[in-house]
Design a protein around this nucleic acid. Sequence first.
DNA 1: CCGTATCCTTTGGGATACTG
DNA 2: CAGTATCCCAAAGGATACGG
Lengths: 127, 127
Amino acid sequence: MAVMTATAGPLNPDMFAGCAPVTPIVRVGDKWTAKIIRCLESGPRRFTELQVPLRGITPKVLTESLRAMERDGLVTRTAYPEVPPRVEYTLTDLGRSLLEPLEAACAWSRRHLPEVLDARTSWEESA
Amino acid sequence: MAVMTATAGPLNPDMFAGCAPVTPIVRVGDKWTAKIIRCLESGPRRFTELQVPLRGITPKVLTESLRAMERDGLVTRTAYPEVPPRVEYTLTDLGRSLLEPLEAACAWSRRHLPEVLDARTSWEESA
DNA sequence: CCGTATCCTTTGGGATACTG
DNA sequence: CAGTATCCCAAAGGATACGG
């Protein structure tokens, strides 16, 4: 694999044409979605169950996140007609397919976060 | 690779303990950073050169993004003492290492975005 | 050319309280 | 238990104008 050292020509003005903003299109670059997906990795989970590792998430925000994910086909919501109510959230195949790129991002973070922190320290020192 | 169909036990309450919010820690889940990285993929670029594919980005926001990336060690800024001024932004090795997970995310999008859009349509119809 | 300086709008997210 | 309903805030980002 060749390493590019020089510019290959002018940038294509339309290089991001069909590529609308990441977050609005598929809500996964936001604060909670990625974490919710990981929470659902090992099977269906209930609302309150999700609130535990998602420390401090308010019911309003959790609901919003789950609704958006449902809308985008990432999770399914199953309500059981019981008293007290029981609701389970499950990853769809589509949602599950996000686990791979998500893991790639986490792997990068595990490997390179120290470098970022170092860079940040150097930056502050030279200021 | 086994597919999990049932829950494996309670979620670990601390599963996101060392894992602070993605965006604040490494600014790459925001609106512009990922695109800037791709713009720099093929070599150094100038400020105005970046503004072209980043349609509509204001100089203020582009500056903010580039400064944050510089601070985090993703890009280097080189100013040449000329008149008129010339400045070049270049990916560091660290910044370049983000290309891989970024490409994984783009690949997912290319492959699955239609499904998301379909899900969204179905959602709207049943409302 | 490469920014800075102001001002303003949007929106994701939080706090709190209440209900079927 | 699983949400809704309100109100509120901070921060990202945009608009516009100006400067070295």
